[in-house]
Design a protein around this nucleic acid. Structure first.
Lengths: 170, 170
DNA sequence: GGCAACTAAGTTGTGCACAACTAAGTTGTG
DNA sequence: CACAACTTAGTTGTGCACAACTTAGTTGCC
């Protein structure tokens, strides 16, 4: 059985939701639901990107790494992790797979032997042309106007920053 | 090395982003960025939930399943997958872990032997009291007003629906 | 110079997400 | 009745995400 991917049931998303027992009446539950909505939207995007990126042989996280490299080649691993907000435990195997696919190479930096520099192969460069139509197809799938996209992105950045700040020591 | 979790660098999120080569000027890239922003926000939420749920011994997806069951016990596996928008390949092992933790039981339905019904154990019921303060702590972490939460949730639902519709056959 | 503190990358182990598949039960139709 | 089509759970394999840890190299400070 496939996921509820292209959702057969619109899913009332935790319908009336957790009834109020020990907590105050209502508003609180909405915060669970906004996280759920975020989670869902993120996965729905993932599904669309999966379709669009299939021909390129990339997953979405791999595509993000390629975006970073297409914008500026010759980047240390650390910087990739920072830009994509990913742990080394995620980035290392991700880069290993991209290397195995022949799209990038990794070389120890000469001036700092701790650092590893990531570089595009010719094949990795060439893939850029094939990826040219990706953003357009995604834009089409969202059906959002430029203003809506900008606004949503801004809200999400503020939310992320707020959550990060709240998640420090407690 | 830990992730960029409580983000040490605010990360300009693919800074100027993929420069325009073969595609038209600018707007397109924003759609990549909105997905990235979504992805980031979702993971930032995950990090906060991880902190808050640690005492309960639950992950966020496990907490979602418990929410469904606390609202209405005695639910078939299929319904859990629909409500949470998850594949059986995700739900099955997830339920297996909750069962191993002693929070739920699974029983073959009598009237339809294909179906499996999920039921809370006493321990699973009891956990509800411990979870009472979760939504409040999350709400606090977001720093959003009720109106903002409602609006954001609504936008995300519309976006998800649109993406689902676009991801069918093409 | 020597050594503690730090930094960069990688590894290990756990859990989520999904595609593709299997097994078992149910339903519809001739 | 019989059998194809469908439905429900579950399994297998791959990849992402992160905590906790390891290894190797650098820097600061005495």
């Amino acid at each position: 059985m496939s996921p509820a991917s292209p959702s057969p049931v619109p899913s009332p998303a935790l319908s009336p939701a957790l009834s109020p027992t020990l907590t105050s009446p209502e508003p609180f539950v909405l915060d669970d639901m906004v996280c759920f909505a975020l989670h869902s939207a993120s996965r729905a995007f993932g599904s669309v990107y999966r379709s669009v990126l299939r021909d390129l042989g990339l997953t979405y996280p791999q595509y993000l790494v390629m975006l970073v490299l297409w914008e500026r080649d010759d980047v240390p691993v650390k910087r990739i992790g920072e830009q994509l907000r990913l742990d080394t435990g995620t980035v290392s195997p991700l880069l290993k797979r991209l290397e195995a696919a022949g799209l990038i190479r990794r070389e120890r930096s000469a001036e700092d032997e701790r650092s590893v520099t990531v570089r595009l192969t010719d094949e990795g460069c060439a893939l850029r042309a094939g990826a040219a139509e990706v953003p357009g197809r995604i834009a089409e799938a969202t059906g959002l106007t430029l203003a809506e996209v900008t606004d949503l992105r801004e809200r999400l950045h503020r939310l992320t920053a707020k959550l990060d700040a709240a998640d420090l020591p407690e």
